[in-house]
Design a binder for these strands. Sequence first.
DNA 1: CAATCTAGAGAACGATCGTTCTCGCTGTCA
DNA 2: TGACAGCGAGAACGATCGTTCTCTAGATTG
Lengths: 189, 189
Amino acid sequence: MNAKTTEEGRRQKIVDAADELFYARGIGQVGMDAVRDAAGVSLRALYNEFPAKDELIIAVLGKRHRMWTEGVTAKVDAIREPRAKLLAVYDYLAEWFDESDFRGCGFINAFGELGAANPRVAETVRDHKADFQRYVDSLVQAAGGPASLGPQLAILAEGAQTTAAIAGTTDAARHARAAAEALIAAAGI
Amino acid sequence: MNAKTTEEGRRQKIVDAADELFYARGIGQVGMDAVRDAAGVSLRALYNEFPAKDELIIAVLGKRHRMWTEGVTAKVDAIREPRAKLLAVYDYLAEWFDESDFRGCGFINAFGELGAANPRVAETVRDHKADFQRYVDSLVQAAGGPASLGPQLAILAEGAQTTAAIAGTTDAARHARAAAEALIAAAGI
DNA sequence: CAATCTAGAGAACGATCGTTCTCGCTGTCA
DNA sequence: TGACAGCGAGAACGATCGTTCTCTAGATTG
């Protein structure tokens, strides 16, 4: 393995460790020392990879965005019928909520904590949510649903995430799915 | 005015100032010095009233809970028809989202920032959301709707709040209201 | 082998912040 | 009047944290 892959591997190890810590404790509660320990690198190497904590935060959100997108699209792509694809989103949520370390949407958490103080975080979160909204809109369109259905389904997904995080139950995905079914049926598709 | 009211007035002045700052910037970004300046009291008086920042945080969340509850119930009570009362919740959200300093649900923000590190905050947020859920459930029951409708309507409200906060638009309340109308109609009430 | 470069370990630095302490003033009561 | 309690202003303290620096040992290269 050459120097390039070593560096790439290290970068990813840092992002993975930071993501786990940020998500579990909140970004402000995690010092760079804790990231260093968890990633098993030196502080020097950490700062070589990410010149400031802000850069690391953005990189972590980027990783979360990719994992979310991959997870949702995989679940949706496994379904054939366009109408049923819409519901697959909530099935993905249900699986996610069931994970023992689930603590809500990392983007919503980051926005609540840093959105007001850190414009880059705010923008990254906005981009992530806008991307998801576009994705849902495209699924609605493919299913022949009205444009008004997209925002409604996305709101259900957002609400399920915060409700599941705070209440600590996995029910929210089931309720959101049932509501989505009703909305889809009401839209006549 | 006697000593009692002076103390009460001061306590409220501190909570009001802290609430505004916490909500606008995030709790961790606001030092006790900033609260002191905004409330116009001495640091000594501040710590006399709240022996630790944690106490102040809980008091601020308590005030937010009361304001939210009063705002929602006022809007709902102004409506006669039980079915329409359910929709009044989203009208309240629409007005709230329109306020220039809207920055999402303070409870969701606090939970994302401190929920993992501060059990009292987590519990207070959970209590607030559970209280709202019970309220919606009671409105659904009064309207003769099925029990399953309550969680769905609450999820729409939660989703509207986070969506409005992050996207920065007031549309979310309208979309949530339209979805609620469809769900209510689908429930046959 | 000698000179040089790199990187790890962690000390150090400077800023911030929660909390407490000191000082001096003001009003009170004997 | 004089002792004293209360309180405001803000300095001070100790901890934390983001970031940088020092020291050292091992690798590299000529």
